[in-house]
Amino acid sequence: MKKITFILLSLLLVACSEMKELSMIKDVENITLCLLSAEVYNAETQQKDKEYLERREVLKTIALKGDERTSFLKEFLNENNYEVVARKCKYEPVYALLVEGKPYAFFDVEYCPTLKIIIEGKEPKYLDITTENTLKKVLDELMK
């Protein structure tokens, strides 16, 4: 029982540190949301006139300003949208979040709801997104 409690507490502490990493973007002004293609392109198949992130074509880009920025960040930083779960699904990013023009996070809110946080000079960190998350509604509104 002690071992299970220790593992659960360790997972909770890891999740809290990732939430701290997320909250760092709340004061950043230059935030861009990107919709990514489902298809993966290797270097040889990428076209020079198109933008790619995580080997996926950027289909749509939205610079988040004003109310759009506020509503997105409210849900993106909402701790209730994240959970400590070890999913066994195949993570494939659908969205990218750029901060000051650099990739900050890649995520999916439906098939395999997972967030990958990119921190320069460190290993990527992962958080599981709840299946009943409020991010999807905001993303659907922004991407329509």
Results as ranks from 00 to 15, higher is better:
residue 57 E to Y: 01
residue 23 S to K: 15
residue 59 L to G: 02
residue 87 R to A: 06
residue 52 Y to Q: 08
residue 35 L to P: 01
residue 10 S to T: 12
residue 46 Q to G: 06
residue 137 K to S: 12
residue 119 I to E: 10
residue 72 F to A: 03
residue 59 L to D: 01
residue 41 Y to W: 04
residue 77 L to I: 09
residue 16 C to L: 15
residue 38 A to E: 12
residue 113 P to C: 10
residue 43 A to F: 11
residue 130 T to Y: 08
residue 3 K to D: 13
residue 62 I to Q: 06
residue 125 K to P: 00
residue 128 D to C: 15
residue 121 G to L: 08
residue 45 T to L: 09
residue 65 K to Q: 08
residue 68 E to T: 14
residue 10 S to E: 06
residue 12 L to A: 09
residue 92 E to L: 14
residue 125 K to G: 11
residue 35 L to C: 08
residue 10 S to Q: 13
residue 112 C to S: 06
residue 111 Y to C: 11
residue 101 G to Y: 00
residue 29 E to G: 13
residue 140 D to T: 03
residue 59 L to T: 01
residue 25 I to V: 15
residue 57 E to I: 14
residue 24 M to V: 15
residue 93 P to W: 03
residue 114 T to V: 05
residue 32 T to W: 01
residue 15 A to G: 07
residue 47 Q to V: 10
residue 68 E to W: 06
residue 117 I to R: 07
residue 25 I to W: 08
residue 60 K to S: 00
residue 15 A to T: 14
residue 50 K to W: 01
residue 97 L to N: 04
residue 98 L to C: 01
residue 64 L to I: 04
residue 28 V to P: 01
residue 115 L to G: 04
residue 79 E to L: 04
residue 57 E to R: 13
residue 6 F to S: 12
residue 32 T to I: 04
residue 58 V to H: 00
residue 107 F to C: 10
residue 28 V to L: 05
residue 99 V to T: 07
residue 48 K to A: 12
residue 37 S to Y: 03
residue 125 K to V: 13
residue 58 V to K: 02
residue 57 E to D: 08
residue 140 D to S: 05
residue 93 P to S: 07
residue 55 R to K: 15
residue 123 E to H: 14
residue 64 L to R: 07
residue 84 V to W: 15
residue 73 L to M: 00
residue 8 L to N: 06
residue 46 Q to D: 07
residue 23 S to I: 10
residue 23 S to R: 15
residue 17 S to K: 13
residue 93 P to T: 00
residue 14 V to R: 14
residue 132 E to C: 04
residue 43 A to V: 03
residue 136 K to A: 08
residue 88 K to I: 12
residue 110 E to M: 12
